[in-house]
Design a protein around this nucleic acid. Structure first.
Lengths: 239, 239
DNA sequence: AACTAAGGAATGATCGATTATTTGCTACGC
DNA sequence: GCGTAGCAAATAATCGATCATTCCTTAGTT
């Protein structure tokens, strides 16, 4: 395998293109919570058949990024106030156990990857140029870092569960930041020092201090949930 | 809308019928691990179009009951020796935390449902008439009982994760039992008293003894994994 | 004998059109 | 005036056929 996935991303199959496009747009919050995802529209916009749009939507449903309403098509998942809490709770319930497993098993190579992931995260600009949104690069680096911490557990099933929860979390996060009024960028409602939190987490992990690492992780997740909850109710575009 | 979901189950949409049928057959082990799932065959067998078969397969992929190979169609997930361990480990990692949450939050109504689920489980015959297989009714009652124990946590995200893991677990279990030689039914390699285990678990849960309940659950999961591992390598139909 | 390359059969992906269901509106009766 | 039956537009589900890729056979070569 050489340059197989790195060549032209736009050269892939129609199905793949449309799937990736819609996925990105959902994650970016281009569709509001509960918005209908119409196969015809998506297909026409990409110049492709209905079947590929349906396929893309079906895949998204499997991933938790869309829901299906019986005989009423597809839609972006809706988001109510306490879904936040549920997602944060799920992460707090599952990730600490995984982190302990990861730290108990991870080898030198894993340590190196954690270090690299943290380095990348630290060096990636958090904010986009103009808007109050996280940059795509930072979002991806952020995901990589958190996943990397847990990858030492070497359990595909558990990492799958992480991926699912992460997607739900990102979706919710995006809507929360989208709900912010334009004049009040996210940084003002997030006085925490995310960089320091990640650094402390990395340090504890590499020092193999499991108790401290779990503490820091739970704290990190709790603070994230709280800052996002604080960002709610400012004037969400819809319900 | 009157009798909408309770009428003829065979009267549902073609898509639903085929989906449910294939799902059941996969769970029953009618296709070996890694077996190809060909849309054309499935569609023709049910007398429906290719699109319907593809849709069903896509849904199955989202559920973890099928995998997709790039430009090479769909297949039943393959199963290697240590996948067992991974699945058991995932359950042992996640379910105890959920059980504690559930027991901390569950109300009287939840207790009643746990009791009912256990009653149903206890009264359902475990084995099918002729073969060495679990009966469908028992499998479903078993799932309901275990899920019910955790439902007190009142967290959709976490219960979703349980559902996924359970499906993987059931798939693996079925293949393990299928691998048994015909003359040696499963009961002989499973000397444990599953009924007593479930009863003890129910008792600890209803007594709100979280530590004991978690202990029993972990023990239950561990024994399951071990008995299933013991059943491996007898002469699996394929790889 | 083994390895490689061409070609055909099988299967996967995509398409355009048709059928069935839902939705929103309108007209009618109470 | 309100509720409801019925019609029409929109959209979801399904179909049969076509295009593209992979797999398997076979012939040719070293």
């Amino acid at each position: 395998m050489e340059a197989e996935s790195a060549i032209e991303p736009t050269h892939r199959s129609p199905s793949e293109r449309l799937y990736a496009g819609v996925r990105t747009r959902i994650l970016h919050g281009d569709f509001g919570p509960g918005a209908a995802l119409k196969p015809r529209e998506l297909a026409d916009a990409e110049g492709v058949s209905l079947a590929v749009a349906r396929e893309a939507l079906l895949r998204l449903v499997g991933e938790g990024l869309a829901v299906r309403l019986h005989n009423r098509g597809f839609a972006v998942p809706s988001m109510d106030a306490d879904r936040w809490q549920k997602i944060a709770e799920a992460r707090i319930a599952t990730e600490p156990v995984m982190l302990r497993m990861s730290m108990a098993r991870g080898d030198i190579d894993w340590e190196a990857r954690v270090h690299a992931a943290h380095h990348r995260l630290r060096r990636t600009p958090v904010w986009t140029e103009g808007g109050p949104f996280y940059s795509d690069e930072w979002s991806e680096a952020h995901r990589q870092f958190h996943r990397c911490l847990l990858e030492g557990c070497a359990n595909d099933i558990l990492l799958d569960l992480f991926d699912r929860t992460w997607v739900a979390s990102e979706l919710a996060r995006r809507w929360s930041t989208s709900a912010m009024p334009r004049g009040v960028p996210l940084r003002s409602v997030q006085p925490r020092d995310g960089v320091a939190e990640h650094a402390a987490l990395e340090a504890a992990v590499l020092a193999r201090d499991a108790d401290r690492a779990v503490d820091l992780l739970v704290q990190h997740l709790t603070l994230t949930a709280e800052s996002l909850r604080a960002g709610h109710g400012h004037g969400a575009p819809n319900g």
